[in-house]
Amino acid sequence: MGKATRASFGETLAALGEKHPELVVLDADLGKSTQTGAFMKKYPDRYFEFGIAEQNMIGSAAGMALCGKTPVATSFAAFLITRLETIRVAVSYNRTNVKLAGTHAGIGIGDDGASQMGLEDIGAIRSLPHFTILQPADHRETCQAVEWMIRHKGPVYIRLTRQSMPDVHGDDYTFEVGKCSVLYEPENAPAKVQATIFASGGPVPHALKAAQDLKSRGFAARVVNAGTLMPFDKDAVAAAAEKSQRIVTVEDHNVNGGLGSAVAEILAETGQACRLVRLGLRDFGESGEGEELYEKYGLSADHIAEAAVRNLD
């Protein structure tokens, strides 16, 4: 059984309220969806409803941060990123201690359709200095990532799913910012496995399933979860390049600017020779069931497994 990472986020915020009296939460008429209700009920004096006015919410968060608060401003990823200029100046350039939580990441949200799907948020924020970008994969990782984010002094963007995410980390998992977590390492693998699959967010369970499917077909593939997208774990990329015949990245985001780009940049800049296949969106999404959309847009386990083995000439 799993839980949507937005739900884990909401629970953790409420739990951290006592230990962090400077923590305040800001919403733009989507608190029910971003799951900030538990915090609101516990700390009504530290919860602010801005209505459907995201840039005003983000700017106010910056002002609060400049006066010692730790504001968490929430909305759908798609609607936060629309206010990029405010994020750029009020948060990044001013180096304010603002935490932006973008829920409803990607096509995984399903029925609501393209305008509600955050697909360019990582790429946009990755171009802003001073930001840390987190995308936890399951409940355990989300709770720890949120706690790290509240303790950390500096701008953070955390990207969260609408859909439920199965547990992929064990009880002993410790989230470390800037570090990927290896979710699956094949036993008795050859010197170079067929592929290392880097996944982040929604498609993480699909990457694990792909590795199992590949195993049953006689292929060995590693699965690595990227819980931090900026700064990116260079060691994890180096290890993947060394141990694998190719790297596959899979993300519920446009292929430009996100996980695939981050891995490509590191491979190219470090001169490590390894083929790269990037799975992600190359267009907008549409309405449908999340799983149907993952199948249609190339993020399902079948597509990931195919990307790991298909001829690349």
């Binding site: 106010s60 002002g63 009020a90």
Partner: peptide, 14 residues
């Protein structure tokens, strides 16, 4: 266009 929101956040903190 951004200053009044930031000032507002400061006043809210106060």
């Amino acid at each position: 266009g951004q200053g009044l929101s930031i000032a507002q956040g400061m006043a809210m903190s106060a």
